[in-house]
Amino acid sequence: MDSVCMQCGKKLTPNEIGAHKKFINRGSTTFLCRICLAGELDVPPELIDEKIEEYKRQGCTLFV
């Protein structure tokens, strides 16, 4: 999947796409990078990273 952030144009990682699906809408076809997603959710980017790792440990298939 070769997607870019719909806000800033940065190339997205699979985990950024997974985070957008997890926190915004699982059916999304356009995505935000972790920085823009953090801004949208009004949380620090580090919290997005922590949640990605937490969900990965729990076996969530949205994250690699």
Rank of each mutant, 00 (worst) to 15 (best):
E16Y: 08
H20V: 01
K22V: 02
T30A: 13
E16T: 03
A19S: 11
K22H: 13
D2G: 11
M6I: 02
K21W: 09
I17K: 12
I17T: 04
T13P: 01
G18E: 10
T30Y: 05
I24C: 02
Q7E: 15
T30R: 15
R26G: 00
C8Y: 07
A19V: 11
M1Y: 08
G27V: 04
T30I: 14
G18C: 11
M6G: 00
Q7M: 12
A19R: 05
M1P: 01
E16M: 07
N25K: 13
I24T: 07
M1S: 11
R26S: 11
F23C: 09
N15W: 06
S3R: 11
N15V: 10
C8T: 08
H20S: 13
K22L: 14
I17W: 03
H20A: 05
V4L: 03
N15Y: 07
D2I: 09
K11Y: 07
D2M: 08
T29G: 04
K21A: 11
C8K: 05
A19P: 02
G18S: 10
V4R: 12
G9F: 05
G9W: 03
T30H: 11
A19E: 07
Q7W: 08
G27S: 15
G27R: 15
S28N: 10
K22P: 00
T29Y: 07
E16H: 06
E16P: 05
P14A: 11
K10A: 13
G18I: 09
C5V: 01
K11I: 12
S28W: 08
I17R: 08
F23T: 06
Q7P: 00
N25F: 08
T29I: 13
I17L: 03
K22F: 15
K11P: 00
M6T: 00
N25S: 14
S3A: 12
T29K: 15
